[in-house]
Design a protein around this nucleic acid. Structure first.
Length: 415
RNA sequence: GUGAGCGUAGCUCAAUGGUUAGAGCAUUGGACUGUGGCUCCAAGGGUUGGGGGUUCGAGUCCCCUCGCUCACCCCA
């Protein structure tokens, strides 16, 4: 094959594209009921926007960004995630001067230079939401509830909601220290990756999958026990509201997010139907990011849904996504009938009926076959006899019934 | 970046180192010169991912390369 798509990118075409459309329209419907409005931001930004938000030492920045110089030698990066561009837009357009909270959703492609595997791609799509200006836990609970409703609307009820709090800039240092103090005599037994984590980012030891590390970290201090008063109250209120809203959740004290900007509430929605990358949606609070970006102190929270992962789950749950079938198929015999069929097709289409035609002088039999394969409801047969009499034959392909209808009455017949 | 597995028709897969690489499904046409589905017949479709090597002979064995997949790191 001479021309192929790049590694880790994919085409989306029927019937799958109808699953995607369903997800996108459902998101818009649900999110708008919660007062979220669409925001459209560029897919490329100045590189430093991502470096400052995601964190200089994060894997995304260190090795996964699509970064290149433009013709004026500015460093440009294809967005690896959606929060930073939205925060940039929020500040640049002074949206903090609008009534608080400001709530946005977006959807579109993200780019990360990684080795593809199940549920992971170089160009992938996210639907995300961001809410600015409210720190109270009611908003956290609302957002989780909104995510749950969205998933339920898509028929997904067997997903796991995992929550955690990773504290704030006040309490996290204490916890980090406690964690470091816990491991010294155990470091030798940890896997090589965890040895590296021990010095670079000890929190990451908590979600290592190596059996020895899982064993060794038993009894390790949990971040929940090191939260400051404010963070602790916030987390407890958050949980109490989740129960109030009947959201079934589990606390995952080992859940640590990979992006540096998170504070307090973090959460993930996971599925058993995915591979190793089982998070279908994830997010959390980032109360400091707007200020660090040069905006006014503004608490915020958001999440992102992985479209490919969500579509994967939907396809295993629900096989009813099909390419829409035409309402009518016009089978014609001869040039005159072919010309007449164009007029009829346009009339029906103007009424919103999907119409397909037979082409290339195919035999009636093969046109019938095609109509059947397309799943058409009705076939109209137009030949010399029909042109003379002004009545065309119809056949209902679902029940096999057939009859005649005047050419002028065909719209009424179909509508 | 690391590791493993796999590359034969559009798809799913056959073919002991030995003739012209086959089958099912799918596509197109026909059996009915104006009636779909079921059945039957036929046709099109392949540089066996690519390159090199061993051999009288390679889809099959060896090397390289590219691609895909899964996993690790990390993440939606």
């Amino acid at each position: 094959m001479k021309y192929t798509a790049l590694k880790g990118v994919h085409d989306i075409f029927p019937p799958d594209v109808y699953v995607w459309q369903k997800v996108e329209t459902t998101a818009k419907e649900v999110f708008s009921v919660y007062g979220f409005h669409e925001i459209r931001v560029p897919i490329m930004e100045s590189t430093d926007i991502f470096i400052r938000s995601i964190g200089e030492t994060s894997d995304i920045v260190e090795k996964e960004m699509y970064t290149f110089p433009d013709k004026a030698n500015r460093s440009i990066t294809l967005r690896p995630e959606g929060t930073a561009p939205v925060v940039r837009s929020f500040i640049e357009n002074h949206l903090y001067n609008q009534p608080s909270p400001q709530k946005f959703f977006y959807s579109g492609p993200m780019f990360r230079y990684e080795r593809p595997q199940k549920g992971r791609f170089r160009q992938f799509y996210q639907i995300g939401v961001e809410a600015f200006g409210v720190s109270e836990a009611r908003l956290d609970a609302e957002i989780i509830s909104m995510l749950k409703l969205f998933l339920e609307r898509l028929g997904l009820t067997e997903l796991n909601f995992e929550v955690n709090s990773i504290g704030c800039e006040k309490c996290r240092p204490d916890y980090k220290k406690a964690l470091i103090d816990f491991f010294p005599d155990k470091v030798g037994g940890l896997c090589p990756d965890c040895n590296r984590r021990y010095t670079q980012n000890p929190l990451r030891i908590l979600d290592c999958k190596v059996a020895a590390c899982i064993e060794l970290r038993k009894g390790a201090p949990q971040v929940i026990n090191y939260l400051c008063i404010d963070c602790k109250e916030h987390f407890e209120e958050f949980q109490s509201l989740l129960r109030l809203l009947n959201v079934t959740y589990i606390i995952n004290p080992n859940m640590v997010r990979g992006l540096d900007y998170y504070t307090r509430t973090t959460f993930e929605v996971t599925s058993e139907h995915l591979g190793s990358q089982k998070a279908v949606a994830a997010g959390g609070r980032y109360d400091r990011l707007v200020e660090e970006f040069g905006g006014p102190p503004t608490p915020a929270i958001g999440f992102a849904i992985g479209m490919e992962r969500l579509v994967e789950i939907l396809k295993t749950h629900n096989s009813t996504f099909r390419t829409p079938a035409p309402g009518a198929f016009l089978a014609t015999i001869g040039n005159d009938a072919g010309r007449e069929s164009l007029k009829i097709a346009e009339k029906l289409r103007s009424k919103g009926i999907t119409v397909e035609l037979g082409y290339e002088g195919a035999s009636l039999k093969s046109q019938m076959r095609k109509a059947d394969k397309l799943g058409a409801n009705y076939v109209f047969i137009i030949g010399e006899d029909e042109l003379k009499s002004g009545k065309i034959k119809w056949k209902n392909l679902k029940d096999g019934s057939q009859g005649e209808v005047g050419i002028k009455e065909i719209e009424g017949f179909m509508v």
